[in-house]
């Protein structure tokens, strides 16, 4: 029961308080791309969820071994990139071997769901907070789910933010950034507001 509570609490924190897009701006450009089509949104979201969770599981053991090392922060990006690359290659080989149709359809954008700031950022943040294995996994799942929620919000607003209602210069990316800023402000309130002071 304690394990489940720890998992859910960490996942919820990562999803709402440390939201990949609204609180950390991790993978914003990928989110812009994913929000254009429903297929992209689901495919990229699930890809990020899978890679982040598996990588979090592996990096937990590496962090436990190297955490005390003074030089770890310098080589950490290289180690994490190796881990992500192994997960990416292994998964691609499995999909290519057993699900060739799926491999063909995801080949074009699969790298976007692996080598992006959301995946690497989740691993770095996990190292900073350095919790238990369950918390590592909870954080990975939560951050990816938070990314998917953010992309979903952007997807809903996408059509309107690209419409002629918006001045031409602001259409697309600029107004999307302002929109994310306003939603970020709302998410910021989730960290807590105290009226006593």
């Amino acid at each position: 029961m304690d394990i489940l509570v720890a998992f859910i609490t960490t996942a919820m924190t990562a999803m709402f308080v440390e939201n990949a897009i609204f609180a950390r701006a991790l993978g914003t450009s990928v989110a812009f791309y994913a929000s254009r089509k429903t297929d992209n949104m689901i495919g990229l979201g699930l890809g990020i969820l899978y890679v982040t969770t598996v990588s979090c599981f592996i990096t937990y053991w590496i962090d436990c071994l190297m955490y005390e090392n003074e030089w770890y922060w310098i080589v950490m990006p290289l180690i994490y990139t190796v881990v992500i690359s192994i997960v990416y290659t292994g998964t691609l080989l499995l999909i290519w071997r057993f699900l060739p149709k799926l491999f063909k359809s995801i080949k074009k954008y699969v790298h976007l769901s692996v080598f992006n700031a959301a995946v690497l950022g989740a691993l770095f943040l996990n190292e900073v907070y350095h919790g238990s294995l369950i918390e590592y996994l909870g954080f990975g799942v939560g951050l990816s789910a938070g990314f998917m929620i953010a992309v979903f919000f952007l997807h809903i607003a996408n059509e309107r933010l690209n419409s002629e209602l918006v001045p031409a210069a602001f259409r697309g990316m600029p107004i999307m950034m302002v929109f994310i800023g306003i939603l970020s402000l709302a998410f910021y309130a989730l960290t807590g507001y105290n009226t006593s002071a």
Binding site: A25, A169, P174, I175, M177, G181, I182, S184, Y188
Partner: peptide, 22 residues
């Protein structure tokens, strides 16, 4: 200094820059 401030500032800057460029 907060992320939302960064998003809004960069968004407005991007819009203004595009208008000037166009």
């Amino acid at each position: 200094e907060a992320p939302f401030g960064g998003f809004i500032m960069v968004g407005i800057m991007a819009g203004a820059f595009r208008a000037l460029y166009n």
